[in-house]
Design a binder for these strands. Structure first.
Lengths: 252, 252
DNA sequence: GATCATAGTCGTCTGCCTGACGATAAACAC
DNA sequence: GTGTTTATCGTCAGGCAGACGACTATGATC
């Protein structure tokens, strides 16, 4: 393999982002509307070129900040206030994935708490949170009657991979707290699991599991009734990032 | 994000391979000696440029075949005869990871049964199977007195990530069978786990676990005494790719 | 203010799985 | 044959998860 600088084909390298959040009890992803050809007018994942002096994770963090205003955390740290979890997902490099030129995209996965509103360079109409189920359903119409064409490029595949990563990773890590505000209740955390997995969990067994795992949750002392009902204890994410034994995803 | 073809910096894209196998009860990786600067004479992971018309997985499979003669399997299929498991690992793109130019490397992980001998374009002296522990130990000397400089580039990091992926993935998948020949005994499979994890497992509990998991192992009817002792049943890998509940890695 | 609906929290019980480990079986080396 | 090695079956206790009962503390409704 001679390393002749004139002997390698040039590639464009981009980062694409799967930004997930939980809104109204549904797992949602950030989508932006393409302003130009190809796939003009279609929804796509946010992303952009990696700059010449930039690491891949830096580029992903920059794109995330541009699209959402969120700051990214280190991959292994538990979610802290106001930031999002960010990790590399996978790389997509089919020669035909972009009809114009050879583009290799390093997809990243970001998990964020529910945010007020998306922003795409200040233009709100070109960015939205959409339920992943809707984005992954080819054709048809969304809740608000908007036509739902398949995502541009291979972004449906990327989104699907990102969702699957999130679904499996909350089993054995404390990553689900990345979807929660800095302080949250056990019930709110349970609703995150329910939204991401699309199943109903037993509140009593879930409570026993998460409060019984050392280092997972630390009580802040406060309580809240923002979900109605009896006041619930508030917790922050503890230092533990790995859940052992894992939280079991119910069978289908 | 305007897609102006003149507005993106050009990258070189390579694939690097973490090829793992189990030899003499130790987890080993394939290393090749670099013939040119930088890092001339140092050991590195096999790899090479992605060609202009080639998918990433195709490039990885091609490099794997060139270095080992192994054919790659589909990522989700269980290991069949004579081939290796191949999956994408992660992508490394630090601007300074190659001192000459901007190179983004899409690392892949390959798991192979024990092979007769490595071949690097027919030149055996420039390729070897080395225990991963040895390759990841900076400085010092290997078993045969050979000096062990750290791997070239960021390949120590890549190898470390690949080993960790393999260690965790055999917990919840049938991937360990990729290290075995087409037909193998329970004891041989157990020795794979022991080598990859670096721990001793109870033969009786291991036997109960793997034979009790439906679809994991299917008996071929034959037996062998190639490990000495009482004849052992021969198995092939069953259709199940996921182990549920997982095989638990003992605490340290 | 009594009643109801909603959530949260604590327990109990049963079954499954794992780790620890005893016992037996079937080959080979001497 | 005796000893060694490896394979395989069984037993038992502890831990954890699923199913579910019971009680608590709020706000909403009449």
């Amino acid at each position: 393999m001679p390393y002749d600088p004139s002997a390698f084909p040039p590639f464009a390298v981009t980062v694409d982002l799967v930004v997930l959040t939980v809104r109204r009890h549904a797992l949602c992803a950030l989508a932006v509307r393409r302003g130009e050809s190809p796939f003009q007018g279609r929804w796509a994942l946010p992303g952009g070129f990696v700059r010449a002096d930039e690491d891949l994770s830096q580029a992903a963090a920059r794109e995330l900040a541009e699209e959402t205003g969120l700051r990214a955390h280190e991959p292994d740290a538990p979610a802290q206030e106001g930031g999002a979890h960010l990790e590399q997902l996978a790389t997509y490099g089919d020669p035909k994935r972009d009809p114009r030129m050879r583009v290799v995209s390093v997809a990243h996965l970001a998990l964020a708490p529910d945010l007020p509103a998306p922003r795409a360079g200040g233009d709100a109409s070109n960015a939205r949170w959409a339920p992943v189920e809707e984005l992954l359903t080819q054709g048809g119409y969304g809740r608000d009657g908007e036509s739902v064409a398949p995502l541009a490029f291979d972004h449906a595949q990327i989104l699907s991979d990102g969702v699957e990563r999130a679904r499996s990773k909350i089993e054995y890590s404390s990553l689900a707290t990345a979807f929660c505000p800095p302080e949250f209740t056990v019930g709110e955390l349970r609703r995150v699991y329910e939204a991401v997995w699309g199943v109903a969990l037993d509140p009593r067994n879930f409570h026993r599991k998460v409060t019984g795992t050392p280092g997972f949750l630390v009580p802040t002392g406060g309580t809240t009734t923002r979900q109605g009902g009896r006041p619930a204890q508030l917790f922050r994410a503890g230092g533990a990032t790995l859940l052992n034994p894992p939280m079991l995803r119910p069978e289908v």
